[in-house]
Simulated assay, not measured.
Amino acid sequence: MTYEELLTETALANEQVVVMTAENRALVRNLPGILGKRFIDTGITEQTMVGAAAGLALRGRIPVIHALTSFLTMRAFEFVRTDVGIANLPVKLSGFIPGFLSDGNGPTHQAIEDISLMRGIPNMTVFAPADEDDLVKMLPAIWQSKRPAYTRINTRKTSYQHADYLPGKAEVIAEGSDVTILTYGLLFEQALIALDILKSEGLSVGLINMRSLKPVDEQAILNAAKSNLVVTLEDHFLTGGLYSIVAEVLLKHRQTANVLPLALEERWFKPALLPDVLQHEGFTGKQIAEKILGYRTTSEQPEILLTEFSE
């Protein structure tokens, strides 16, 4: 099932569902003719769309709204925060081309701070499916919730069949004692490749698809921290994303871990076709595995130096 098919089925089954877009119909091309007045295109006016969605939600509707992620989360941020978040309204934000999925677009269209922004909003829930199969398994629960929600929309088709989604729970793909990779969204594909490479090197490797970033599965993170190395992998700025979430959870539970963050550290990525973006920025499965192997080798040295210094 595709995103559009799921949304169509959901809207036809529930007349309270209203589909909205800010002139971004890529995900919902066929819905205007099906839903009629329950399909609303406000034009390139993300702030107006969010405000109107809040008004509809106050009158019992369930608005599912669409826009490019960068504009939905940044241009309309105040409206999302004040009209939707503070009021705790069931507006469902669908962000199109988040992270590396905006591949050929420059910094103005790159949403690589969206997780940080959205999870800081009162009452907002935040989700990042790994691919289309994961997306359609997660969205029914997300749309049925009475809370506001932001979802990084990922309609990439992969061969991986995900487990059913349990609200707020991560998907444990594999468990390992040497390395555990925590990731979400698009980079799950590359993490699978890295997993196989690392296992071929004789390592015990875990992989967790975080899926839900707010609420977050704290126990999954605490379990991952038992590995010798935890890797946070994300197409997001280092600040405020999964690396920050892991740090917050560990501090909350008074635990520590050896953590290697793989993210964008205060820089935007070079626009190109997606395979070239991943290669240039160092986020292919092979490059991820090489970074982890390299870190495991060099990270032994500081411990030796510290011991010698203490003596």
Score class of each variant (00 low, 15 high):
1 M>L: 10
3 Y>D: 00
4 E>G: 08
5 E>Y: 07
6 L>A: 12
11 A>D: 13
17 V>M: 09
21 T>M: 06
28 V>L: 09
31 L>G: 00
32 P>N: 12
38 R>V: 06
39 F>D: 11
45 T>G: 11
48 T>Q: 15
50 V>Q: 01
54 A>W: 05
55 G>T: 08
56 L>I: 06
56 L>Q: 01
57 A>Y: 05
66 H>C: 07
67 A>H: 12
69 T>P: 07
69 T>G: 13
72 L>A: 11
73 T>G: 11
77 F>E: 04
80 V>F: 01
81 R>S: 08
86 I>T: 09
87 A>Q: 15
89 L>W: 09
90 P>D: 05
90 P>S: 14
90 P>R: 08
93 L>C: 02
94 S>L: 13
94 S>V: 15
103 D>A: 15
103 D>T: 13
104 G>R: 13
105 N>L: 15
107 P>L: 12
107 P>N: 15
112 I>P: 02
115 I>T: 08
117 L>I: 15
121 I>T: 08
124 M>P: 11
128 A>V: 12
128 A>D: 10
130 A>T: 10
132 E>S: 11
132 E>H: 07
136 V>Y: 00
137 K>V: 04
140 P>G: 07
141 A>F: 08
141 A>K: 15
142 I>P: 02
145 S>F: 03
148 P>D: 09
150 Y>P: 06
153 I>Q: 06
157 K>F: 10
157 K>R: 15
159 S>E: 14
161 Q>M: 09
168 G>P: 02
168 G>Q: 07
172 V>R: 13
172 V>Q: 08
173 I>N: 01
174 A>K: 06
176 G>I: 04
178 D>R: 01
180 T>H: 02
182 L>Y: 03
185 G>N: 07
188 F>H: 12
188 F>K: 08
197 I>N: 09
198 L>T: 00
199 K>M: 08
202 G>D: 11
203 L>N: 04
203 L>I: 03
204 S>Q: 01
208 I>F: 02
211 R>L: 03
211 R>K: 10
213 L>D: 02
214 K>V: 10
215 P>Q: 03
222 L>Y: 04
223 N>K: 13
227 S>A: 15
230 V>R: 07
232 T>G: 08
234 E>R: 05
237 F>M: 12
237 F>P: 07
239 T>Q: 14
240 G>W: 00
241 G>K: 01
242 L>Q: 05
244 S>R: 06
244 S>Q: 11
249 V>S: 02
250 L>P: 03
252 K>N: 14
252 K>H: 12
262 L>S: 12
269 F>H: 09
269 F>D: 10
269 F>A: 12
270 K>H: 13
271 P>A: 05
274 L>H: 13
275 P>F: 00
278 L>V: 06
278 L>Y: 08
279 Q>P: 05
279 Q>F: 09
288 I>F: 00
289 A>F: 01
290 E>A: 14
291 K>C: 00
296 R>S: 06
299 S>R: 13
303 E>R: 14
304 I>H: 10
304 I>P: 00
308 E>W: 11
308 E>C: 09
309 F>A: 13
311 E>I: 14
